[in-house]
Every structure is written in structure tokens, then in C-alpha cells.
Simulated assay, not measured.
Amino acid sequence: MNIDLSGKTALVTGSTSGIGHAIAKGLAATGASVVVNGRTQAKVDAAAAGLAKAVAGAKVRGIAADVSTAAGCAALVAALPQVDILINNAGIFEPKGFLDIPDEDWSRFFDVNVMSGVRLARAYLPQMLKRNWGRIVFISSESALNIPQEMIHYGMTKTAQLAVSRGLAEMTRGTAVTVNSVLPGPTMSEGVETFVKDLAKQNGQSVEEAASQFVKQFRLTSLLQRFAGVEEIANMVVYISSKQASATNGAALRAEGGIVQTIG
């Protein structure tokens, strides 16, 4: 399959590192003009330069904006009025017991993980419908289906993304615009690697041992039995962003290594 997104503009939020950066790299390799986003100009510039170096002929630029706020989303849209492919990847996570999660954390997680995608979809979906082509992808999580007791606030936001995604897909009926979600499982991004390194230090283990123990203890139903690589998630996102994925709409696509025990 030859995925060619030449002539399309793709915005990937939270793409200075981790899954988002891998998605941006994958889309750049298909010929899309990729816009990297992060909160600081320095990180955005570094990420864009890295992609330009890694992908021959890449068309890439960076826009610094904090998409967790309405003002940040508005600034991003003002700097980038038209988008063909919107990847709502920006997100945060933090293991914390339910009784220790204050109100402000619930609001912060909802703003970053849910409202960023809501605001950007609200800005870009109408023009996609008008042009009769577009792709919106929400990067959710298997935690949307298996709410983790160690971070219920995170799981709540990931479930909310599925609801928003499916609802938006209903608005695309009869068009060539699609809205889907991708559900990664434990993935070895930079942020997760830091988390695993902390676990290893606390337990006197190697990083590999800590990662393996985490999967076996907290994601015991995993068929993959390891953390996924960021490229493995990006591959799914690049496909669902492609012209070839025209019949996939309103779906929650699992890339979680078989953690969720269902045939659906």
C-alpha cells in the first residue's frame, strides 16, 4: 500500500516528542505538509528541525501554542487557518489515587485531554465538510475502556474523547470526511520512559525489568506482553489519516496489544 498525502496539511498537537512526534514523522514521510505543535517555541523548533533531518524532503513547520486553553487554540487556528488532517494528540497523564485527586486536577486533565480536541475540531471540521475531504483523529487510550484505578481522572478523559469522536463522526454522514479514535496501550514514549525509570529506581530494578513488571501487574491481560513503540502507534494513525481509509469512520481503533478482552 502506497500512502500518498501530498498536498494535504496535517496538524499534530503535542508533537514535540513521544507518540505525537512519531505521528508527525510518519505523516511527513507520506508527503503531507506537517505542522508540529507544542507549548514552547524552542521545543517546537527543535522538533521541526529533527523531522526535517530525519525525513528527506519533509515539508514541516512548527507553531507554538498551548492547546489546553481557549486562547492557545485560537492562536493556533489564527496561525494555521486551514487543515486537512487534524491529529488531536496533546495529552497528559499522572498516576494518582482517586482520594488524592483535587478538583483542579480533574479540570486540568479535561482541558488538556478533551477540550483541546473539541476546540480544534470545532474550528477545522466545518471547512473539511465544505471541501468534502478531511481526517480528524483523537489519540485516546485503552484506559478509555479499562479505567485504571491508579488514574481514574485520566481514564475519564480518554472515554470522553471516544464520545466526542463518535459524535463528530455522525456529523460527516455522506461526506468524504472521517473522524476516528486510536486507542494505544502502554507505549514507551519519553514521558512514559521517565515514569518507568522512576519505578525502576524505586524498586531497585533495571528499566527493562520495571517495564515488564508494570505490564504484568497492571495490564495483565496484555497479549503483547510489552510496551509498544511509538512508531507502532504512528503506523495506525498514518493509515487512518490516508485516502485509503475512506470507509473507516466513527471507529475506536485499538492498538493496545490485546489488553481489552473483547471481540468487538
Score class of each variant (00 low, 15 high):
15 S>A: 14
15 S>K: 05
17 S>D: 14
17 S>N: 12
20 G>E: 04
24 A>N: 09
26 G>D: 10
27 L>H: 09
28 A>D: 07
28 A>M: 06
29 A>D: 08
34 V>W: 13
38 G>I: 05
41 Q>G: 13
44 V>P: 04
48 A>L: 11
48 A>T: 14
51 L>C: 08
51 L>K: 01
55 V>T: 11
58 A>H: 06
63 I>D: 03
70 A>Q: 08
77 V>H: 01
80 L>R: 09
80 L>H: 03
85 I>N: 02
86 L>E: 01
89 N>F: 09
90 A>W: 01
101 I>G: 01
102 P>E: 09
103 D>G: 11
105 D>M: 12
106 W>H: 05
114 V>R: 02
134 G>Q: 05
139 I>S: 03
148 P>G: 09
171 M>T: 14
172 T>Q: 11
176 A>T: 10
179 V>E: 00
179 V>F: 12
180 N>P: 05
183 L>K: 02
186 P>A: 15
189 S>Q: 10
189 S>R: 05
190 E>D: 15
194 T>K: 11
200 A>V: 06
201 K>D: 06
202 Q>T: 11
205 Q>S: 08
212 S>I: 03
212 S>C: 04
214 F>Q: 06
214 F>P: 01
218 F>L: 13
218 F>Y: 14
219 R>E: 14
223 L>T: 08
233 I>V: 15
240 I>G: 00
241 S>H: 06
245 A>I: 10
245 A>T: 02
250 G>H: 02
255 A>P: 09
262 T>E: 07
263 I>E: 05
